[in-house]
Structure formats: C-alpha cells, structure tokens
Design a protein around this nucleic acid. Structure first.
Length: 362
DNA sequence: TAGGCCATCTGGTCCT
DNA sequence: AGGACCAGATGGCCTA
C-alpha cells in the first residue's frame, strides 16, 4: 500500500519540485490559462475536465483550489488589477481560481498525502483500541469486540473498579457484572457475563489442591477468558467449529441466547470460542494490567508467579451472592476446567497492581 | 437480502 | 501553511 502510494506520489512530487525549481512564475501555467481572462473565471473554469481524473479527483481539483498555488493566484490577481486599471469595475467577492493542470496535480498530491496520514492515524487509533481490548474483561485475538463495545466495556470497567476502590470492599459479583455490562449490546453482555460467571465459579469451586497455588483468594470476580475457553473445549458439549463465538457477527453459540442472568441460570451454555488467554483484568489480585503487552514473556510469568504462587484459597468474607451461578452449576463446570496454572501460564498479562493487590489482601 | 461493522476517502475546521 | 482531528459518504465483508 505504502509502496504503491510512494510510487504514485513520488514522481508527482519530483515533477512538482522540478516545476517549482523552474520558478514560481511558470509561464507554462500562464500560457495554459492564457486563453481565459483570469478575472472572468466562473464555474465553467472549474468544470474543465482533468485528464485522467476520477469523480473524486475532479471534486478534489475543484474544491481544493482555494488554498494552493497562491503564486498563480497572485498572478491572476495581478492580471485582474491590470484589467481593472483599464477601467473595468473590480469584481467583488471571493475570486474563483483557475484550476490549472499543475495546480490540480499539486492538489492531487496533497490529497494523497492527507489520505496517507489519515490512514496512519486511523491505524494508530485501531492499535490503541486493540490495546484497550486486551485490558478489558473479555479479550480474544480472533473474535474482537467491536470498537463501540470495547469503549463501552472499558468505561464500565473503569467505573466498576472505581466503585470497588471507593467502597473498599469486595464487590457483589452480580452487581459487578451488571455494572460491567451496562449499556452493552446483548451479545457483548452475554459474553462478559459468561466470562465473569464462569470464572467466578471456577475460582470458588476449584479444589484447593490445584487452586491453592493459583487461586485468587480475594478476587470474587476473577475474569479469565482462557479458563472460559478451556471450559468449553473440555466440555462434553464442545464441538470444534460449532457454535463458535462471533462477537462481531453476533453469533455466540447455541445455548447462549439471551442475557445470561447474573444469577447464572444456564447450566451448560456453550462457552465462546475464546482463543486468546489475555484478559483477566478484573482479577484485582493478579490480573489487572495495562502494560503487560509491552512486558516480555518472562516478565509476565514472573508477575504471575509473584501473585499466584503461595496464595491460599479463601472465600470472600462477606456475603457475595455467588449462589445461583456458583452453587447451582459451579461444580459441574469446574469438573471441566483445567487447573488454573494451565491458564495463567498462557497468560500474557502482568499484574502490576501491587497496591491494589495489597489493598484487597488486607 | 438486510443490517452491522469496518476501512478508506474526502472536505471542513482548528491548531501550531 | 501544513498537519491533526472530525464527521459524512461509500463500498466491502460477514452473518442471520
């Protein structure tokens, strides 16, 4: 793309540079305009066909003439003055400028450069959005949240974390899910809720033998799409290629219709086909990270071992209504969940939130 | 086929 | 003046 751009633009630029070097008072341009009275430019002048111009190019040439080639404009104005000095009344109002081939060419080059910049800008913006996707509670490399859903979820996520910090206590999972899903589309709501519900159940029901090492004791709402994915794959209901999540296309797999209630009423929804183990951001003890993507793999693993090893399983001390989701289906789900160390080893998220971590350990 | 999402082009506006 | 930013238009792709 860029090479094509350069190959197209560079010759023009070089030619323009050469034109410029020949002098601003390029007589060629004057000659080309010569048949027109510069002071009598009207719409017809702007409509003159441009060689090889598309509709866009024609429009571009027609409306870009207001800010380029002032030298030529000055020339035109000078000629106008000359004419006026001969007695003709001076025309008022904005002057319409002749779109000479050279001017059109320059305009074209400028437009192409602007397009390239705009593309780059949008790519940067999309990169930032991708980074944001990685730090919101649900992330998949293959099934991306839409832009708008990413932003909504991120906003809710920030608000939810702020709420947690403000209250200074572990959140109610149901309320947390509701807060997180506020304003999200139904598919995204299902996705997020599903992630949270399952992970909650996982953490609460995982045997201590396995969970002792990797449990997040004080994180009642740990979100880990990877375990989400694993639960699906390991589920007896899982069929490769069937019912895969498609956030963008809003296909979330059979049995995953409608909003998954915060209480968790679906004993066996088909988990979305998450492939990327990237997002445990709601795991305040170990998974919240905004910079992990820059961290090398070794650093990430280091962070995880820092946070997960040696932790002991403990239920949240206050009455969190895990009941419906956790109690009703947690056991069945957890049977199919691989040990969390399988998850975290694939995790590329470093948890640099020691402060927050410490806060929730107190 | 309709609808959602996206990339790109484009012109306008604002800022440096 | 040039670049950044923005929003509208357009067309492609994908899924239900």
């Amino acid at each position: 793309m860029l090479s094509r751009l350069f190959s197209e633009v560079l010759p023009d630029v070089q030619r323009l540079a050469a034109d410029w070097a020949e002098g601003n008072e390029n007589e060629d341009d004057k000659d080309k305009v010569g048949k027109h009275d510069p002071c009598d430019l009207d719409d017809d002048d702007l409509d003159e066909p441009l060689e090889g111009s598309s509709r866009a190019e024609s429009e571009m040439a027609g409306d870009d003439d207001d800010d380029d080639d002032d030298d030529e404009d000055d020339e035109a104005e000078e000629e106008c003055d000359d004419e006026n000095s001969e007695g003709k009344p001076k025309k008022r109002g904005p002057k319409k400028r002749k779109m000479t081939p050279a001017r059109a060419e320059r305009s074209k080059v400028r437009r192409m450069k602007a397009n390239a910049r705009e593309r780059t800008r949008m790519h940067d913006l999309n990169s930032a959005l991708d980074n944001l996707r990685k730090v919101v509670p649900c992330y998949s490399k293959t099934q991306k949240l839409s832009k708008i859903e990413t932003l909504r979820l991120a906003k809710n996520y920030i608000l939810a974390l702020g709420e947690i910090l403000r209250n200074g206590k572990r959140p109610d999972v149901v309320a947390y899910v509701q807060m997180l899903c506020k304003g999200l589309s139904q598919p995204t709501t299902n996705l997020v809720a599903g992630c949270l519900q399952l992970n909650t159940r996982n953490f609460l029901t995982e045997p201590c033998a396995e969970g002792a090492r990797f449990h997040v004791p004080s994180s009642p709402f740990s979100v880990n799409p990877y375990s989400y994915r694993c639960s699906r794959i390991s589920s007896p209901h899982y069929q490769p290629g069937a019912g895969a999540l498609n956030v963008r296309g809003h296909s979330y797999g059979s049995g995953y219709e409608g909003v998954y209630p915060p209480g968790g009423t679906s004993p066996e929804y088909n988990s979305p086909d998450y492939e990327a183990p990237h997002s445990p951001p709601v795991c305040l003890n170990g998974g919240l990270s905004g910079r992990q993507q820059e961290a090398p793999e070794t650093d990430r693993n280091y962070h995880y071992s820092m946070h997960y090893s040696g932790l002991t399983t403990s239920r949240p001390s206050h009455s969190i209504p895990y009941g419906p989701s956790g109690a009703r289906s947690g056991g069945a789900q957890s049977e199919n969940i691989p040990p969390f160390h399988d998850v975290h080893l694939h995790h590329d998220r470093a948890p640099p939130y020691e402060d927050l971590n410490a806060f929730f350990h107190n």
